[in-house]
Design a protein around this nucleic acid. Structure first.
Length: 359
DNA sequence: AAGTCGGGGTC
DNA sequence: GACCCAGACTT
């Protein structure tokens, strides 16, 4: 038996107090109002690496626009991405639409009530398969996310790095042994809810409010901030860009990003690598077949991704086109831009400057 | 197992 | 600044 493990009989002691706590403290959340499998699925995809408070308005708009799995499957991808605009990890939205089509084709339009079947769908990994299976269908399967790992490593003072697959696997099996057959979905949600609202990810946890503090080794030893142990992260790479807000007769230039990589296939304002001087910026416009009638500097901006930093300068340009080029600009009105094209938040600072200029 | 993929809240 | 969030997928 491993050093840090307590036996299953002990860990099973969390079940009753946890469910009882959840009965009193479960938050009222949009996806809990009418927990249809489609609703549970959409919420779990949106919640991947994303806070509850961030997801709420996105979930409401999504269900309003795409109320059923079939409407999602048949929706234009542009609409799906527009509904996802600003939420990040955009493959989640594309994969969800792919999965919706697969469910229509191979499961008769019903979200499959099987952990293994769910796991075959794009965008659904071990966590999400377990979450949907237990919450939407009442199947007794674990779902182990960052919240669960934090709660359990604290209860057990487990010092292993939670980034390791073996550790996640270990806790998944521990949960499988104790998950109550009567209320698996509530149990999984209770564990996550406790992690989100009491056994918090940042700052001091509210141990005095925790229904498990009586058996939490970290709390009893006053060592809660030592857990969970996580691997160190690599420093971010810095990239420098120049962004162009180009206006031609009340229209704005945007273009589609590459089909793979960062922000794949989304729309952006034209840009180039490096910080361009005013003269270099004019030359760049010329190379696009555009002549600057006016050009002025915009406020610089920075955007932090998980592994990259974008440092951006920008120019506002009013142009005429002196030569038809085969560049891939799309010239759109302000209304089309705001209504139909998904621009990632990395461009938000320039997007805001543009909207205030066009106001 | 390590890298990639977003964005924002919180300390 | 640094960390982390109801992770999945590719290499």
């Amino acid at each position: 038996m491993q050093k840090n493990s307590i036996d299953t009989k002990d860990l099973s002691l969390i079940v009753t107090p946890l469910l009882s706590w959840y009965d009193q403290h479960a938050r009222i959340l949009p996806w809990r109002e009418n927990p249809l499998p489609y609703h549970v699925w959409v919420s779990e995809i949106m919640l991947q690496q994303t806070r509850v408070e961030t997801v709420k308005p996105y979930f409401d708009r999504w269900i309003e626009s795409l109320p059923t799995l079939a409407t999602l499957a048949h929706a234009p991808e542009e609409q799906v991405l527009k509904l996802w605009e600003g939420l990040g990890y955009y493959n989640r939205a594309r994969n969800m639409q792919k999965a919706a089509k697969m469910i229509l084709d191979t499961y008769g339009g019903e979200v499959p009530a099987s952990y293994d079947a769910l796991l075959t769908l794009p965008g659904i990994g071990e966590y999400t398969a377990g979450a949907v299976a237990s919450i939407a269908f009442g199947l007794p399967v674990p779902c182990v996310d960052g919240n669960v790992l934090r709660v359990l490593t604290r209860i057990l003072t487990d010092q292993r790095e939670i980034d390791q697959t073996s550790v996640k696997k270990y806790f998944t099996e521990e949960i499988r042994l104790i998950i109550p057959r009567e209320r698996p979905g509530d149990f999984n949600q209770a564990l996550m809810e406790l992690g989100a609202t009491v056994c918090m990810p940042n700052g001091l946890p509210k141990c005095e409010l925790c229904p498990l503090h009586f058996m939490c080794k970290a709390c009893l030893q006053d060592r809660v901030m030592e857990f969970p142990v996580k691997a160190k992260k690599k420093p971010r790479k810095k990239e420098y860009k120049t962004i162009f807000l180009i206006l031609k007769e009340e229209k704005i230039a945007i273009r589609r990003r590459e089909e793979s990589g960062l922000l794949a296939n989304l729309w952006e304002f034209p840009g180039t690598a490096g910080f361009l001087t005013l003269k270099e910026a004019k030359d760049q416009l010329n190379s696009w077949g555009l002549l600057a009638e006016t050009i002025e500097e915009l406020n610089p901006a920075k955007h932090i991704f998980t592994h990259i930093e974008w440092h951006m300068t920008g120019y506002l340009c009013k142009v005429t086109e002196f030569e038809e080029q085969n560049h891939d600009f799309e010239w759109v009105s302000k209304k089309d831009l705001t209504d139909h094209f998904a621009i990632p938040s990395a461009y938000k600072a320039f997007y805001m400057q543009l909207l205030s200029i066009l106001k």
